[in-house]
C-alpha cells in the first residue's frame, strides 16, 4: 500500500557536496512535517523504501532524508568527515563496530531489546535488524540436482577434480574493493583452514573478481560462471524470485551470517526520531510484510536453531582486528598471492 503523500517523493540534492561519495539521495516528505530524520545507509532504495514508508505510517510527521552510499564512504562520512546524520545503517558490521568503539556513536539505553538475541546489539549503540548469510551460488546448468557441494572441502575437491571445467568460471568478491567481501573472507580465515586452500585452488582456476553480489548472480544465472563464492544470501534470494538458472547453497560446515546494523552517529541532531527509527528496526522481525517487501531477512533465532551451521558474526573488539592497518595489508597481500596469481 502506498500512501498518497509519497507521490511527493523527489530526488533531493544537498547544497554542499560532501567529501564522501553519495550514490543516491532521496527525500520522503511528510505531509505534516514537524521534523526531519537524516539517514545515511548502504541499503539500496528497493530494499529500504518499504521500511521507510512503514515507519512514516507510524510517525507521519517525520520527513526522512535517505542518503545511499557505500560502506567505506559511510565510515568516512561519520568517522572522518563529521557529516551530520541522525542514523547510520550499514551492512559492514566491522565498520559500524569501529565507529561505536571509537566514540562516533551515541548510546540508546532505552531500546526495547526484549526478545532480541544478545548477539544482535552492542554497547546499546549498535543494533542489528537483519541476519544475512554468505552463500554459494551455483549454476543449475553445471550442477545437476543433488551434485551441489555441501562443505568447503567438497567444493575444493570438486574444483580440483575438474580444473578445466571451472577455469575462468568461478567468481568471488574482490575483497580489496568490497567491504562485505573482506569481512566474509576474514571471518572465513578465522573459522577454517580450508579457506586458504580454497583461495589457492580458486586462484589457480583464474577466478573472476566482482564488486557486487548482483553481478555475480547475474553471471551465474547466465551460465557465465559455474559458481560464485560468498555471495550475499539476501540478494541471491531476492534475485531467485526473478531469474532462473542458479541455486543457493548454504554450506554444512559453517555459514557466516552478517548483521545489518543501525547506530546513532554522535553528530545526530534529531535523536528522538532516530531512536524511534531504531525501535522500529528492532521490531522489524515482527513484521513479516516488511520482511517480504524489503527482501531483508530479519533477525531470527529460529533460523539459527534449524540450521546449526549459521554463525552470526559476533560484535566486539575482535571485529577491529582485521581493520588494523598492518593486519589488513598483510591479509590482502596473502589473498592476492593466493587468488590473483597471474
Amino acid at each position: 500500500m502506498r500512501l498518497a503523500y509519497l507521490a511527493a517523493l523527489i530526488t533531493w540534492m544537498p547544497l554542499a557536496a560532501p567529501a564522501f561519495e553519495v550514490e543516491e539521495q532521496l527525500r520522503y516528505s511528510a505531509p505534516d512535517e514537524r521534523s526531519v530524520l537524516r539517514v545515511i545507509s548502504t541499503a539500496d532504495r528497493a530494499a529500504f523504501e518499504p521500511i521507510i514508508e512503514a515507519f512514516q505510517r507510524s510517525s507521519p510527521s517525520v520527513t526522512v532524508e535517505y542518503t545511499i552510499t557505500g560502506t567505506t564512504d559511510l565510515m568516512q562520512a561519520i568517522g572522518t568527515d563529521g557529516a551530520v546524520f541522525d542514523l547510520a545503517i550499514s551492512s559492514a558490521m566491522d565498520l559500524q563496530t569501529k565507529l561505536a568503539n571509537d566514540g562516533f556513536a551515541r548510546s540508546y539505553a532505552g531500546a526495547d531489546l526484549d526478545g532480541l538475541p544478545e548477539w544482535a546489539s552492542w554497547r546499546d549503540q549498535v543494533f542489528a535488524f537483519t541476519q544475512e548469510p554468505a552463500v554459494l551460488v551455483i549454476s543449475t546448468a553445471d550442477f545437476p540436482p543433488g551434485s551441489a557441494p555441501q562443505t568447503r572441502d567438497d567444493l575444493i575437491a570438486i574444483l580440483r577434480a575438474d580444473p578445466e571445467r571451472f577455469r575462468g568460471r568461478v567468481g568471488t568478491y574482490d575483497i580489496r574493493r568490497s567491504g562485505f567481501g573482506y569481512l566474509m573472507a576474514t571471518q572465513d580465515s578465522r573459522n577454517s583452514g580450508a579457506f586458504w586452500r580454497l583461495m589457492e585452488v580458486m586462484g589457480r582456476l583464474e577466478t573472476k573478481l566482482y564488486c557486487c553480489s548482483g553481478a555475480m548472480i547475474q553471471d551465474v544465472a547466465e551460465g557465465e560462471l559455474a559458481l560464485a563464492y560468498n555471495v550475499l544470501g539476501s540478494y541471491a534470494r531476492a534475485q531467485a524470485a526473478q531469474i532462473d538458472g542458479f541455486e543457493i547453497v548454504e554450506f554444512d560446515d559453517f555459514v557466516n551470517v552478517m548483521l545489518r546494523t543501525a547506530l546513532i552517529p554522535s553528530t545526530a541532531q534529531n535523536e528522538v526520531d532516530a531512536r524511534r527509527f531504531i525501535d522500529f528496526l528492532i521490531a522489524f522481525r515482527n513484521r513479516p510484510d516488511l520482511v517480504d517487501a524489503s527482501g531483508l531477512p530479519a533477525i531470527s533465532t529460529n533460523a539459527l536453531q534449524t540450521n546449526s551451521a549459521l554463525r552470526p558474526i559476533r560484535f566486539g573488539p575482535g571485529l577491529l582486528v582485521f581493520l588494523d592497518q598492518l593486519r589488513r595489508s598483510n591479509f590482502l597481500r596473502n589473498w592476492e598471492s593466493s587468488v590473483v596469481q597471474n
Binding site: 578465522r190 559476533r314 573488539p317 575482535g318 582486528v321 593486519r327
Partner: peptide
C-alpha cells in the same frame, strides 16, 4: 594483530 588479542577483551 592476533584475533584473540582483541576479542578476548570483549
Amino acid at each position: 594483530l592476533p584475533y584473540s588479542a582483541l576479542s578476548m577483551l570483549g
